[in-house]
C-alpha cells in the first residue's frame, strides 16, 4: 500500500541556517509514527513545512498521492491533515465549546463517518465536557493541550501531526493523552507525533524516525532505532 504521506528530499533554509537538509519520510496509513531528535534538529520545521506554515526550499510532499507541496495552511487542513502546535494554543477569548465549534466548521465535507458528530461529543472524548462553558483562556495548561487536540480532531483529519503534545503535562495527564492518541488509528486517523520523552514514544509508537541537524539518521522499529549506535551517539549524555 502506498503511504498516506510521502515526503521526499524536503529541505528548508532560514537564511544561512539549514533546518531541514533533504528529508525522506513515509508515513503509513493507520500507524502512529514517532519523530525524535535533539533540540533544533528540525522536527517542528518538518511539520511546519508539511502543513504549509513555511514554504519548503526544496522537495515534495505527497498526501494520498496528491502533491500538496507549498499549499497554504488552510488548504492543507482542508485536505485532511490536522496539526497541533508545540506551544499549546486555543482561541483564548472564546468559550471552550465555541472553540471546538469553530474548528469543525471549516473541515472538508463528507468522507467517512464522523466519530464525534458534535462539538460536545469531541469534548467528551478529550475529557473536557465539564469545561465547555469556560473561556479557553482560563483553562489550566493540561486542559489547554487537550483542547488543542480537540480542535485539530474537529477538522476531521485523516492524518494528525502532534508536536510535543505531552510537554508540560503531569504523569496523570500524560497517561490520559496516551490513552486518547492510541484510539485514533481505530477512528481512521493516522498519527505522527514528536516528543522528547522516550518512555512516551515507546508506549505510543512502533516505529521511530530520528532527525539530527535537519537530516534523518534513523528510521525503523522503535526498539531497533533506540539501540542504533548512531542514535545513541546523538543522544550521548542525553535522556536516553
Amino acid at each position: 500500500m502506498s503511504p498516506i504521506l510521502a515526503i521526499s528530499g524536503l529541505s528548508k533554509q532560514f537564511g544561512g541556517v539549514t533546518a531541514l537538509a533533504g528529508v525522506d519520510l513515509a508515513i503509513e496509513e493507520g500507524e502512529i509514527l514517532g519523530v525524535v531528535g535533539p533540540n533544533g534538529s528540525g522536527k517542528t520545521t518538518l511539520f511546519n513545512v508539511v502543513t504549509g506554515v513555511h514554504k519548503p526550499s526544496g522537495g515534495t510532499v505527497l498526501f494520498r498521492g496528491q502533491d500538496i507541496t507549498g499549499l497554504k495552511p488552510h488548504a492543507i487542513s482542508r485536505a485532511g491533515i490536522g496539526y497541533t502546535f508545540q506551544q499549546a494554543m486555543a482561541f483564548a477569548g472564546l468559550g471552550v465549546l465555541e472553540n471546538v465549534q469553530i474548528a469543525g466548521e471549516h473541515a472538508r465535507a463528507g468522507g467517512t463517518a464522523n466519530p464525534w458528530p458534535t462539538p460536545q461529543a469531541l469534548l467528551d472524548f478529550v475529557g473536557l465536557s465539564a469545561l465547555g462553558g469556560e473561556k479557553a483562556g482560563v483553562l489550566p495548561f493540561g486542559s489547554l493541550r487537550l483542547l488543542g487536540l480537540a480542535l485539530a480532531l474537529a477538522t476531521r483529519p485523516s492524518l494528525l501531526l502532534l508536536d510535543e503534545p505531552a510537554a508540560g503535562l503531569n504523569d496523570r495527564e500524560t497517561a490520559a493523552l496516551v490513552g486518547l492518541v492510541r484510539q485514533l488509528p481505530g477512528h481512521g486517523i493516522t498519527v505522527c507525533v514528536i516528543d522528547h520523552d522516550m518512555k512516551l514514544m515507546q508506549m505510543l509508537c512502533r516505529r521511530l524516525a530520528v532527525l539530527d541537524f535537519g537530516s534523518k539518521i534513523a528510521d525503523g522499529p522503535t526498539e531497533a532505532v533506540l539501540a542504533d549506535p548512531k542514535v545513541l551517539e546523538v543522544y550521548l549524555g542525553g535522556d536516553l
Partner: peptide, 15 residues
C-alpha cells in the same frame, strides 16, 4: 472571532 483571537491557529483549522 477566531481570526481575531489567533490567526495562526485559525489557518491551521482550515480558515
Amino acid at each position: 472571532r477566531a481570526i481575531r483571537e489567533n490567526e495562526k491557529l485559525a489557518a491551521s483549522l482550515g480558515i
